[in-house]
Write a protein that binds this DNA or RNA. Structure first.
Lengths: 140, 140
DNA sequence: TTGCAATTGACACTCAGTTTCAATAGCATC
DNA sequence: GATGCTATTGAAACTGAGTGTCAATTGCAA
């Protein structure tokens, strides 16, 4: 899976005219080892041989490419996550911090309603859901 | 309206055992003058006689009381906003930056589905919708 | 192999938010 | 109205997240 991902991203970068550099490869590997979500500085610390600015630049680039997405934690802090291909939302456990993805068709109806009521043209959105995961619920 | 708000908040603070202090009064007034959303530092700058730490403490307190809410801007930066009483979401114009509120019953169905599918107990959520407002759409 | 533009790293900087702690000030009580 | 206790405040230094600059490096196409 790791090689598939690296391959896919390699092709993605080339197709968009970006170079496949050592630091970019390395950062992707590091992120795969960081769990379901991580702070920018986790990446900086886990890749000491890569410059701080490069970490942030790469994080931004990978977001544009759809490879990485942002997660808004319950207190408002930002974290990052390797993104699945499809459009998705995040479900966060407020107790253990786990993050998992979900998608929902019903959400489209919400946006259609909003457009009709407000006259806005909806272009994007962010939905983060906070709750307690099955494991944490069982544990108490 | 301004006095009603101040009154309501005064009672809210007292009811919860907080003191109604000069800085708290002053910050509320300042926020009312800052438009539909503002950065924390906008408040710091607009109230130079109040200490920086107090601004952040007050912002946090007012969030707990439901008087102020956070807005996640399209690039991920956090802003604040005086909150309407009811539960609501934000609709942001990516062109002019305007923020307005909306609510949606259809969203409840989404959460019910998520709970059923994942076993999570949903406790809270954040939904920000980005688009172009009627004015900006007309202007082009 | 070469050349050039994309990329990098070091470093200093900004912006957002927190911590600490002594000084101040609400507010309940007398 | 004065008193006293505790919540609150302000100054200042600090952390964490992200950006800007610019000379040096390096993919990669030719």
């Amino acid at each position: 899976m790791s090689t598939v991902t690296a391959d896919a991203i390699e092709r993605l970068l080339a197709r968009r005219g970006y170079r496949l550099t050592g630091p970019r490869r390395h950062l992707l590997e590091v992120m795969e080892g960081l769990g379901d979500h991580f702070a920018a500085d986790d990446v900086v610390n886990a890749a000491p041989e890569v410059g701080r600015a490069t970490v942030f630049r790469t994080l931004r680039l990978l977001q544009e490419l759809g490879v990485v997405c942002q997660v808004v934690l319950d207190q408002g802090a930002l974290a990052y996550r390797l993104a699945p291909e499809e459009h998705h939302h995040h479900l966060l456990c407020v107790e253990c911090g786990a993050v998992q993805d979900f998608s929902s068709d019903a959400l489209e109806a919400v946006f259609a309603e909003v457009e009709a009521r407000t006259g806005y043209a909806v272009e994007a959105h962010r939905l983060e859901v906070y709750g307690r995961c099955p494991d944490c619920r069982a544990r108490e």
